[in-house]
Amino acid sequence: MNQSLVAFMARSEVPAANLGLGCYEGADAQLIRDPAGAGLVSGFIDGSTQGCGLLLACQGEAADLPAGLANCQPFARELMGTVHLFAMQGELQGLEDSRAFPTGVYTPIGDASAERAFCVLMSRMRVLWLEDTPLPEVRLAVVSDFAARMRPLGLANFIYADSELLFVHGHQQAGDPDRSGLFLGRSEGGIRVSGQALDRGDWQGLEPGEVLMIKGAEVLERCAPFKLWSQLVD
């Protein structure tokens, strides 16, 4: 993970304003968020002796949002005794319309549209989880529908984890709608997902708008991009 972070930061065109890390242990997750870029993330990785089966790391840019813990990804919310994590690249417009994008019991803490988008997703997921742990294919359907609703609002490359499954949505590269927004890499029996190909490994770009459902080192399902009926042109 340290090698991936070093490679990612080296490829960044602007200085990082913050770094964040979410490391799962069962249904819970340890968050290390460093809005000041003080080396907390790299220090945690260097000092950690415990393995982690599912880990999210995020780098924010200085011009994105006001500095502060509330705007530092990944964002976390609890649902039925499980920590859910979310990270997104992009800025979305129109999420303030609570009729179209209700957040339910989840309230954003900071100013990031990514956090509001996460609250919208969690509000929809909560309906599923209130009865019992929903089937993976049902969760994928909700995430894919959510992704289709986010794409018209702006750049929406996101990663969402519910401790068991990882969902990734590769929208597009900023300023280049024909290029994939996320890349999938395999190494040493694991899977890595990144906004950039970090090394010379076997990295493949997701189809723009595609949603992947991942468990451990296996891609369980790929959902091709689709448009909602309200987005279709007569």
Score class of each variant (00 low, 15 high):
Thr103Trp: 02
Arg77Glu: 06
Leu184Gln: 11
Glu96Asp: 13
Val120Thr: 02
Pro74Asn: 09
Val83Gln: 15
Asp145Met: 08
His169Pro: 01
Gln59Lys: 11
Val193Ile: 15
Ala117His: 02
Arg222Thr: 14
Arg192Ser: 15
Ser98Arg: 15
Glu207Tyr: 11
Glu137Asn: 13
Glu131Phe: 06
Gly39Ser: 06
Gln3Gly: 10
Pro152Lys: 08
Asn157Cys: 08
Val211Lys: 09
Asp34Asn: 11
Trp203Gly: 03
Glu207Gln: 15
Phe167Val: 05
Cys58Tyr: 09
Ala224Ile: 04
Phe146Glu: 03
Leu184Trp: 11
Leu184Phe: 04
Asp145His: 13
Ala62Phe: 02
Gly201Leu: 05
Leu212Gly: 15
Cys58Asn: 08
Leu65Arg: 11
Cys119Asp: 01
Gly20Glu: 03
Asp132Val: 01
Leu54Trp: 04
Leu228Ser: 13
Leu153Thr: 08
Gly110His: 03
Glu221Ser: 09
Gly90Phe: 03
Asp34His: 09
Ala117Met: 01
Thr133Pro: 02
Ser12Asn: 12
Gly185Glu: 07
Ala224Cys: 11
Glu96Leu: 09
Ala141Tyr: 06
Glu137Tyr: 06
Gly104Met: 01
Gly90Cys: 04
Cys58Ser: 15
Leu31Lys: 05
Leu55Asp: 05
Arg124Ser: 07
Glu210Thr: 11
Ala147Trp: 03
Ala62Met: 10
Arg116Gln: 12
Val120Ser: 01
Gln73Val: 09
Phe75Cys: 02
Met213Lys: 10
Leu166Gly: 06
Pro102His: 01
Cys58Pro: 00
Ala29Trp: 04
Ser123His: 14
Gln93Thr: 04
Gln93Gly: 00
Cys52Ile: 00
Gln89Phe: 00
His169Lys: 03
Ala16Ser: 10
Leu184His: 07
Glu13Thr: 11
Leu228Asp: 11
Cys72Ile: 06
Gln50Cys: 05
Ala38Asp: 07
Glu61Trp: 10
Ala174Met: 13
Gly170Gln: 08
Gly104Arg: 01
Arg149Leu: 03
Arg151Leu: 07
Pro102Cys: 07
Pro102Lys: 04
Asp97Leu: 01
Ala70Trp: 05
Asp178Thr: 12
Ile214Met: 10
Ala100Leu: 14
